[in-house]
Amino acid sequence: MNDRLDKAVDLFKEVMIFGTERIIKSIDHEIYELYSPEQIHMLQILFKLEKASPGRLAELQGVHKSAVSNRLKKLSHNGLIDVVESEKDQRGKTLTLTDKGKSIIRQSNELISSHIEELLAGELKESEIDEFIRIFKKVKAILKVEDDQ
């Protein structure tokens, strides 16, 4: 890999890892006191996919199924997700967000967007924002993010 692309990949990873944590920790709202970043991430995934199995959530979060199981118990107990048992396989489950879960994620998305906008206001030129959008659309297409189900 050439040095410039290597640097771009490293920066992308750093923003993904540390940026998410920084943003969530710096927003003072009860959602982030009630639910961990990992739980919010799980809800985000379900919001995007509409439904998923526990195994798929574990894959997307890069954790063992037992970690997902513990998160799901709390989210289910709080009425944020529905767990539908498979009629074909006793071990199979499909997870979806409840209306309450969707509301939490919509609120979280608004909080995060507002916070990022405040952080970046005046820091980026319009041309830089356009370039950012262009590059991320291209990366998304290359990774086939939407087809990853």
Rank of each mutant, 00 (worst) to 15 (best):
N2K: 05
L5A: 12
L5D: 15
K7V: 12
L11M: 12
L11V: 11
F12D: 07
K13L: 13
K13Q: 10
K13T: 14
K13A: 07
E14V: 08
I17V: 15
G19I: 00
T20Q: 08
E21S: 09
R22F: 07
I23V: 05
I24E: 03
I27N: 03
D28R: 04
H29D: 05
H29A: 02
I31G: 08
L34P: 11
Y35R: 03
P37A: 01
P37G: 01
E38C: 09
Q39F: 11
Q39R: 11
L43T: 03
L43S: 05
L43D: 05
Q44L: 12
Q44V: 05
I45W: 03
I45G: 02
I45P: 03
K48F: 14
K48P: 10
L49Q: 10
L49A: 06
E50V: 09
A52W: 02
A52R: 02
R56F: 08
L60F: 00
L60M: 02
Q61N: 02
G62W: 00
G62D: 00
K65S: 07
S66Y: 06
A67M: 07
A67C: 04
V68L: 01
N70T: 06
N70S: 11
K73W: 01
K73L: 02
K74F: 07
L75Q: 13
L75G: 02
H77P: 03
N78I: 02
G79L: 10
L80F: 07
D82P: 08
D82Q: 14
E85N: 13
E85C: 13
E85W: 11
E87A: 10
E87S: 14
K88C: 15
D89M: 10
Q90I: 09
Q90S: 15
R91W: 04
L95E: 13
T96W: 14
T96E: 11
L97D: 06
L97Q: 03
D99L: 05
K102F: 09
K102V: 03
S103W: 06
S103L: 13
S103I: 12
I105W: 02
I105D: 04
R106D: 04
R106Q: 12
S108M: 00
N109M: 04
N109K: 09
E110K: 10
L111H: 01
L111W: 00
I112N: 00
I112F: 00
S113W: 07
S113L: 03
S113V: 04
L119V: 02
L120G: 11
L120N: 04
L124Y: 05
E126C: 07
S127L: 15
E128T: 11
E128Q: 15
I129D: 12
I129K: 06
D130G: 12
F132A: 15
F132Y: 06
F132N: 10
F132L: 12
I133T: 03
I133H: 01
I135R: 07
F136S: 12
K137D: 07
K140S: 15
A141T: 07
A141E: 09
A141P: 08
I142H: 09
K144W: 08
K144M: 11
V145E: 13
V145Q: 13
E146G: 04
E146S: 14
D147Y: 12
Q149L: 10
